[in-house]
Every structure is written in C-alpha cells, then in structure tokens.
Design a protein around this nucleic acid. Structure first.
Lengths: 344, 344
DNA sequence: CTGAAAGCGCTTACAG
DNA sequence: CTGAAAGCGCTTACAG
C-alpha cells in the first residue's frame, strides 16, 4: 500500500507536488506531471479517500437514501445515479430508511448517527417522506441534496407531473373511444406522502371530464401498487355487472399486469374485450405487451446525479428548493385497442 | 457541526477522554462518561467518520460488490446485509460491476481506482466472477472479504448446494409420481461462472436416475432466468408432441412463472395438467401459487454480513477460504400435484 | 512551477 | 482513570 510519501520519493519531488499533479492542477509542469504519474502507476498508488477527505473537506461520496431495497423501481433509479456518479469519480453510500413503523429506532439512529458522520458530500433521496424534525436535521448538515419524487421543503426536487401522466394515460383510452374506464389507484392517506395517488386520480378524472364522461366512484378501486393488489382490484371492477368497464387505467405497471391476469382468469381477452394501461415502464411490461406511460427510472437517477454534481461544482447549494420536471413517454403496446365492437 | 474539541471543553476534559468515553472504553469513570455523553448529546456531536478512520485505520464501512442493480434477488441480499451491518454501526458503499462486456473501462476503473481508495474495511461480493488479475488486486488490499454464490479462490464463501437444491425440487416431482419431467435451465457456458446451471442440471438428472427415469435431452430447454425466457422455453417443451411432460422443473422462479403463463396460453391447467416448480423464493411466487425451493436471499445477506463482522472482530481474516453452506427450504404451494389421471 | 509547513479531527500508545 | 502529544495521509494557503 503505497502512500504519497513513497510516490514523492520515487518521483523525486515533494508530496505537495504529487498531490497537485495527481489532482490535475494546472500549476504543474508537464515533465513533473509525467514523472509523478509514472511513479504513482508503478507503485499502484491511489490516494486514501479518508486522508484526502479529512484534508480537503470533500469526500467524493454521495449518500443515497431510499425507502425500499429489492424493488425494480428503486433499483433502477439507484443504477442510473450510480453510473453517473461513478463516472464523475464518486462513490455511493446507501442509507436504507426501512420499515419505519416496525423499526422506528433504526430510522432514528439513521438520522441521529449515520447521517451525521460526515461521510458524504451530498445526498440523493428517492420517494422519501421526512418529518419536520428530520428535515431540520438534514438541513443542519449543510450538504446539497436532491430529491426524486418530492417535493421536500427547501430541497431541489425532480418530480413527475403525476396529474399530467395520468391524464395522458386516460386520454389514450378515451381517444380510442372508451367511455367506461375503470381506475385502480392507491390509498389516499392524508399523511406525509407525496400525494401521488391523489394526483393520479385527479388526472384520470380530468381526462374523463374532457371527454364528457362523468366520474363514477364505482369505477374506482384501491390497491397497493403490486401485481397481487392490481389483480384483486381488477377482479372487483370486472366482476361488478353495474360497472363493466371496457378499459382499465392502473396507477402502476405492476397493478396493470395484475389487471391483465385478472382479465384472463375471467375469460376476457386483452385488448379485444378489455384494454389495460399502466404507468412506469416496468421491465415486465414488454413481456405482457402492456401499454404504459414510461417514467424512465434509470434516467431519473441519472438526472438526479447530474443535478447534484452541478450543485457540488458550483459550490453553493444555489438551486436548493427548485422543482424540476421529469420526462415521461407514452408507450403503446398491444394491451390497448378500440372498445369491443368498434373494430374496422 | 460540533467537533471533539467542543465536547471536551463543554465537559471539562481532554479530547482523549471524550474519544475514549464515546467509544465505550472501560477505562473511563462513570462520572466522566456521563459528563461527556451529556455534552456530546447537547451539541449533537457525532465523530467525523473521516477523521476517525484516518486515526484508527478502521472505516466502519463495508464495500458491497454486485453485478446487477434493480433485480429482486440482489436487492434482497443487499437488504439483509445492510440491516445486519447497520445494526453493527457499519455503512455500506456500493460497487456495481455493471455490464462488463459493453463497459470494460468502468470495470477496470473500479478495480484500479475505486476499490483502492481504502474507503472500506472489508468487502461482500455477490455472484461476482473475478479474473485472476482482479482477484490478485482484491487480495492485495488485505481486507476481509466474504463471497455469496462463490467459490472465489482464497475467499470465505457462502454458497448454495445447487445440486442438492435441484435434486430436492426434482424429487418432489418424482415422489408425486411424475415420470416425464421437463427441465428449464441456464446456458452452461464454460467461462468464469460458478457452474450454477451445470450443478442444477446435474441435481435434476441425479434425481431422475434415482427414480429410475432416464434423462432425455429433448426434455431440457435453455433460458436466461427471466419470465420471458421461461415462457419461451416452456412453450418449446410443452408444444413438442414427443416430449409431453406432466411436470416442469425450472432453475429459477422467474422461469417457472414463465412456464405457468405458457401453460395457460396453451390451455393447460396448473397443476391439474402440469406441475411446475422453481428455485428462489421469489416475491411473486406467492401470487402465482408457485411451489419452490426457497433460498432466502435476505437471510443470505444477513449471513454474509455476520461472517464478515466475525472476521472483522477477530482481526485476522482467519476464516479466509472457508466455504459455508446456505440454507434452503422446499415450499409446497398449489402449482405442483400428482400427474393427470392419478387423483384420488 | 515547486516546497516547507500547517492543519483537517480524530485515536492511541505512553506517562503519570 | 486521565492528559499531553504524536501521528494517521493527505491538501492547500503561503512564500519563493
């Protein structure tokens, strides 16, 4: 394990010069730089992150805070962020805000201890809901932070326009001629959350209204964003003779896939007898030929990292509090078509 | 941002004593300890990880190396490891060995730069296939390392007995009376990999032999461990009139789910006309009522962390090179039953 | 363009 | 049980 001392001796210069040369500072002559690089390469020298951090105040490490590990969505965002940060020379340290209800002490410890260690230069937080107290603590750290799925008070946030996304998905169905459109959404609990379920329902209703269709509570079902939940909710909608939708819009792809499976079990052909559309761009969407509004999670991670790197470069967390909009895209696959009896 | 200085002044002791008191060293009197703790609490002091690491040589940070981000399996292992390590006061820094074929320079940089920064005390590597050169570099770091899914030369490895697992799954089918059992496995490329596909096939064949059934190459299909791959492979097996299996054993749950969906599309009822079993314990297994051999990925992560913490505590990487066996468990759900025509 | 020196904020022998 | 002091391995004003 070579140290900067060893490199300095081998190259015949001071450690200060080694540090400058390897950091790519412009104040080093080309000859010297080459000597230093050769020596460093020969010894396999890489500066100790720990010593470098203590001296410079920069860790080249970003904290990534997320509530779920093992799901496709969060993993994808993480992947996109990691790629962009690694390319910029940054590591990622993980902070899993797991299962607050059952393990409040773990969450407490995360904010009281782990986040206070000054191990990272900045944070990315995905779909994290923070209390006032937690937000105060985060701000007390005085580190740049970018949220995905916000908004978080005083934090730069990248978020999806959930109303617009739901409006687009529903309009896709009305423009095909559907008039009886079921909706599978999430619980609209009045808690810390980001209002995502409510916004998506509002987008759905706005699109219905535009098409001159009156919203009917019997056309709506609540689920938990999983395949199983979507399956059960769809069975309720499809099994109710008073509803009889010709299309279903689900607020997530997994719920939409559940709806497709429910339709199959009920003997309904998709899309001939039932159209289904979701939101996400889930990896399983292709296999199920699911029409969806893709929110490009990997790209979301990349954008979050890019925004953070920009704040890190300019120094001041100048952009703090700004809200940026994430891109989305309608992807029409086989699961949506004109209503039954309207084929050309 | 309080420093150890501030705490020392407030408590009226030296910084050395603050350090010792907060580290829980036994050589501090109870009164002093209390004074220090009060002062630290009052100031919201937490030792800087960076300064502590440089002084002590310990980072309280573990590197987690994995080839895939965004999949259920790796996310689950990560979750289990993170939980156990966080409870012991450790952070996790992520090293994503992504897509080596398309981005060899990223992989190279990871080994040449990121891993050399001495940011972590130890490594956990999941299903990572390393070249000789990479292994040499890792060993040059002289840090404890635990592999999951190994084996890696000179590294403590936790692995599944793939032959035994496949044998168990297949025997479950033969013991129900199945004689014509299809197999969906993975490509047995002769590369760096861990021979997992080969071992699972061998376990399948051994169980067949025990039941007096001769192995037939036409009963085997190759896929890529995904739902889509399993679906296509199952269609081949089920569509071939010369094969006509009454059961399918897939080397992963996702492929098994693909097989269930293929059976549905071919009008075959599961389990009445076709039994299906997988390996994994995938979160979707319950919804599809899939019989499986659960390999408990979250628990695998926990065990890896525990093994690593043990090495870290005893100092010497004493257990290096040891191979430990991971637990597994047959979970019988609705997707397997006696062959057609044999119901009581 | 380069070097000597201070300093980042801790931990830990060493002495007492 | 406690403190003074050295040292971990870098970076960065400061001088030249």
């Amino acid at each position: 394990m070579a140290t900067i001392q060893g490199v300095a001796e081998l190259a015949g210069v001071s450690t200060a010069t080694v540090s400058r040369a390897l950091a790519g500072k412009s104040t080093v002559s080309d000859t010297t730089r080459r000597k230093v690089e050769d020596a460093a390469h020969q010894l396999g020298y890489v500066a100790s992150a720990t010593a470098s951090s203590l001296a410079s105040g920069r860790t080249r490490n970003v904290g990534f805070v997320l509530p779920v590990l093992g799901s496709w969505y969060y993993g994808s965002v993480l992947k996109g962020a990691n790629r962009a940060l690694a390319d910029a020379g940054y590591d990622i340290t993980l902070y899993h805000l797991e299962d607050t209800d059952r393990h409040p002490e773990r969450r407490e410890r995360l904010f009281a201890e782990f986040l206070q260690r000054k191990r990272v230069d900045a944070f990315i937080a995905v779909s994290v809901e923070l209390t006032e107290a937690e937000l105060t603590r985060i701000h007390g750290l005085r580190k740049p932070m970018v949220g995905v799925g916000g908004p978080l008070a005083g934090v730069t946030t990248l978020s999806l326009d959930d109303r617009a996304v739901a409006h687009l998905a529903t309009s896709h169905l009305t423009s095909l001629g559907h008039r009886s459109i079921g909706y599978i959404g999430g619980e609209e609990a009045d808690n810390l959350d980001f209002q995502l379920p409510r916004h998506r329902r509002e987008g759905y209703e706005a699109a219905l209204a535009e098409a001159g269709i009156s919203a009917d509570p019997r056309h709506r079902a609540i689920a938990d964003f999983t395949i199983q939940g979507g399956y059960e909710a769809a069975k309720q909608l499809l099994g109710d003779p008073r509803v009889h939708p010709t299309a279903i819009f689900a607020a997530s792809d997994e719920m939409a896939i559940g709806a497709i499976l429910a339709a199959r079990d009920l003997g309904l052909r998709v899309p001939e007898e039932l159209s289904v559309i979701g939101i996400d761009g889930h990896e399983l969407g292709e296999f199920f030929e699911l029409t969806t509004v893709d929110q490009h999670p990997v790209e979301q991670g990349r954008l979050a990292a890019a925004a953070l790197l920009a704040e890190l470069r300019t120094g001041a967390a100048g952009a703090a509090g700004v809200a940026l909009e994430l891109p989305y895209e309608l992807k029409v696959r086989r699961s949506t078509a004109v209503p039954p009896g309207e084929r050309a």
